[in-house]
C-alpha cells in the first residue's frame, strides 16, 4: 500500500515541482530513493548554488519519516559540514512526523532552513557562533563555500 502512495507523490512532484526544486529517481526501478536538486534561495548567501540532496523513503513510509541528506557540501549551522550532510529539522523528527505529511512539505521546510538558519539548534557550533556574532562574515563564508562546492 505504501507503493501506491509513493507513486502518487512522485507523480505529483514531477508534474508540479515546488519552485526551485527538481526531482528524479536515483534508479528508475526503485521509487524509494529520490535525487533532489535544490536551488539556493535568492536573498540567501546560497543563491546561485545548486545543492544535491538524497531523499530515502524507509519501507515503513509514510508511518516513518523519510531520511534526507545534503550530498553537496553546505556551510550552514544546521547541516553537518562533511560527506554525510546530515541535518536537524523539526518535521522529520518522529514525534512531529505525521503519516499525512508530504514530501513537498519537507522540501520547502529545507528551503526555509536555508533562508533562516536556527543557530540554537545547531549541528555545527562554530558556524552557528559566526552566524550569531558576525553575520557578514558568515554570509561571506557561505557565499564562498557555495561557489566552491555548489556549482
Amino acid at each position: 500500500m505504501t507503493q501506491k502512495r509513493i507513486t502518487k507523490e512522485l507523480q505529483e512532484v514531477l508534474a508540479t515541482p515546488p519552485p526551485g526544486i527538481k526531482v528524479n529517481l536515483v534508479d528508475e526501478s526503485n521509487v524509494h530513493n529520490w535525487n533532489i536538486i535544490m536551488d539556493g534561495p535568492a536573498d540567501s548567501p546560497y543563491a546561485g548554488g545548486k545543492f544535491q540532496l538524497l531523499l530515502v523513503l524507509p519501507p515503513e513510509y509514510p508511518f516513518k519519516p523519510p531520511k534526507i541528506n545534503f550530498k553537496t557540501r553546505i556551510y550552514h549551522p544546521n547541516v553537518t559540514f562533511d560527506e554525510h550532510g546530515s541535518m536537524c529539522i523539526g518535521i522529520l523528527k518522529s514525534e512531529a512526523w505525521k503519516p499525512s505529511s508530504r514530501i513537498p512539505n519537507v522540501l520547502t521546510a529545507i528551503q526555509q532552513l536555508l533562508l533562516e538558519p536556527v543557530p540554537d539548534d545547531a549541528l555545527e557550533q562554530a558556524t552557528a557562533q559566526k552566524f550569531k556574532e558576525d553575520r557578514k562574515a558568515y554570509d561571506k563564508e557561505a557565499r564562498e563555500m557555495t561557489k566552491k562546492y555548489a556549482k
Partner: peptide, 24 residues
C-alpha cells in the same frame, strides 16, 4: 492505515498519552 500508525507509535516509539491524530 490508522491501525498501522497506532502500531508504529505504541510499539516502535513507546508513545501512549501523546498520540495525535495522523493529520499533519
Amino acid at each position: 492505515c490508522y491501525g498501522q500508525y497506532l502500531n508504529q507509535k505504541i510499539k516502535e516509539e513507546g508513545e501512549a498519552a501523546r498520540i495525535q491524530c495522523p493529520q499533519d
